[in-house]
Amino acid sequence: MLYHLVILSLFLSLSDAATTIKVLKGPTVSRITHNSALIYIELDQPTSCSIEYWPDNKNMVKKILLGQKKLINHKVESLRPYTTYTYRINCLNVNIPPVIGGSFTTDFLFEVTQIQFVNAPKVTGTTPNSATIEWEANVDADGRIVYGEKDLSLSRDVPPIKKQIIEITELQSDKRYNYQVELHYGGKGLKSEIGKFSTQPGQAQTQKIFRLQPTVVSLTATEATIQFETLSPSQSTVYYGTEQPLKQTVTTRSFTTGHTITLKGLKANSNYLYRVEVTPQKGLTSASPDFPFTTKIVD
């Protein structure tokens, strides 16, 4: 009798060992969106499994029967946005603790009803042959800039980025241009108001303004002195700064042909740009291109 009991016990042990299933990988949760998540687990052999999951309220448990599977890669859907869910995987004969699972939180739901400009398009810098236009949208919208001297017949495509800094090149010097930004996102469109900008004069045109081109003749850590001569008595303004647009100014009110202007209160060891505008007694205001200089290091 004892012999038969030992044989039966050994048989049952071997039978259990033969049906014990191990977890090779997982469980993990990935590809989480505002209303879905992908649950993954890999076993060493097929077995019957199910997934249960619920939000904060355990009375709302949902159960999915998966059948005989070795690899579970199941997408649970119709979840609530920004909600923490608990999940549990039940598999027959798996040699692990009774509960396989964990928790995850779904993403926010962002519904874009319309495209908007957070910061409207504006021109932040020009050269004789280019213009820089910046704006910021509320979504990653793509589109284009349309521009031209009279009509908007030229265009430049823009990538889908919220904050844009786009340079338009191959423009003609000393010309007035119109421009407009067109954006597209999720089947919706947005157009900015039509703006205007003027390119700077080219070298030949600046020679008509200046007898001697603007030059930095003295430079320290905090000051820069600029000299130039105009062909006729003129008032002058120097625009300067470390970035476009150049917002700081120094203006001389007297009409003269010899100009000396000192920029004060500069930052040491910094790169600056400056532009000179002159207005003669009779005639229109004209401007030079932007020129660079770098202040010295403090001793």
Rank of each mutant, 00 (worst) to 15 (best):
V6H: 05
L8D: 02
L10Y: 08
F11D: 08
F11C: 13
S13T: 14
S13G: 04
L14E: 04
S15Y: 05
D16I: 07
D16T: 04
T19G: 03
V23H: 03
G26E: 08
T33Y: 01
H34K: 14
N35K: 13
I39L: 14
E42T: 06
L43Y: 11
T47R: 01
I51D: 00
E52T: 13
Y53C: 05
W54D: 01
D56A: 13
K58A: 15
K62V: 10
L65S: 15
L66H: 04
G67W: 02
K70Y: 06
I72G: 01
I72P: 07
N73V: 00
K75E: 13
E77L: 08
P81K: 00
Y82C: 11
T83K: 06
T84M: 01
N93H: 13
V94C: 04
P98S: 09
P98L: 02
I100C: 06
G101E: 06
V112C: 00
T113N: 15
I115W: 05
I115P: 00
P121Q: 04
V123I: 01
T124I: 15
S130A: 11
E134W: 04
W135A: 09
E136T: 07
A137V: 06
D140I: 08
A141G: 03
A141D: 01
R144P: 08
Q164M: 14
I166R: 00
I166G: 05
T169H: 09
T169P: 07
L171I: 00
S173V: 07
Y179E: 03
Y185W: 12
G187R: 02
G189I: 10
G189N: 11
K191H: 12
K191M: 14
E193I: 09
G195C: 02
K196E: 09
S198I: 07
P201Q: 04
Q203R: 14
Q205C: 04
Q207L: 14
Q207W: 11
I209V: 11
I209S: 13
S218A: 15
A221K: 13
E223P: 04
A224G: 07
A224W: 05
Q227I: 10
E229A: 14
L231R: 15
P233R: 06
P233M: 07
Q235I: 13
S236M: 10
T237S: 14
T237G: 11
E243A: 15
E243C: 13
P245L: 09
T249C: 08
T249D: 04
T249F: 05
V250T: 07
S254M: 11
T260F: 02
K267M: 12
L273D: 05
L273W: 11
L273T: 08
Y274F: 02
R275K: 01
T279P: 01
T279N: 09
K282F: 00
S286F: 00
S288F: 01
D290H: 10
K296T: 13
I297L: 15
